[in-house]
């Protein structure tokens, strides 16, 4: 059930990251609209808890646990009036089950392109802008502190003290 020409080139694997960059209120507001329009069934509880985080050490290549992370998971079934069924899910480094459930609804609606999915595409683009802004801030930290190791007197020097 595709709706017109509105599409996105963002893959499903990127969606959660992009929505996570937005305010929870913004995400929940859009998801609430779908929760009113469609019947939402929770597939099991939406638990929040912890996950163990294993890393591979870069010295000898062995695995170890760096520590634990908060996690929330949600898995929902979305059913429209015509009986069409979609499934959505989310897993986040967060302990807010309601936020994770909201993202699971968005995930399911967008994956199945259920009618009315267009606002979710807007959320993706908003999220992408937020992610870009964060990345630009981090790049600025790097760019401002990049070390110039060219030898004094062998290259064109900026006379910073002049």
């Amino acid at each position: 059930m595709l709706a017109g020409h509105i599409e996105t080139n963002r893959t499903r694997g990127d969606w959660l990251r992009l929505w996570s960059a937005l305010s929870p209120g913004r995400v929940k507001a859009v998801a609430d609209g779908f929760a009113q329009r469609y019947r939402i069934e929770d597939l099991g509880a939406s638990p929040s808890g912890l996950g163990l985080l294993p890393l591979r050490d870069s010295a000898l290549g062995e695995s170890y646990f760096l520590g634990e992370i908060p996690l929330a998971r949600a898995h929902v079934r979305i059913i429209d009036d015509a009986g069409m069924v979609a499934e959505g899910a989310a897993v986040l480094l967060d302990d807010r089950a309601s936020l994770t459930r909201a993202m699971a609804i968005l995930d399911g609606v967008l994956a199945a392109r259920l009618p009315g999915f267009e606002p979710i595409l807007e959320l993706l683009e908003e999220g992408a802008r937020a992610v870009d802004e964060i990345a630009a801030g981090r790049r600025a930290l790097l760019a401002a502190t990049r070390v110039d190791f060219s030898l004094l007197g062998t290259a064109d020097e900026d006379d910073e003290d002049a």
Binding site: R12, L53, A90, V91
Partner: peptide
């Protein structure tokens, strides 16, 4: 982390 529906590894957050 694996997406609960697709099983594909997705970014669930960052530390």
């Amino acid at each position: 982390l694996p997406h609960p529906v697709t099983g594909e590894l997705i970014e669930a957050g960052e530390v």
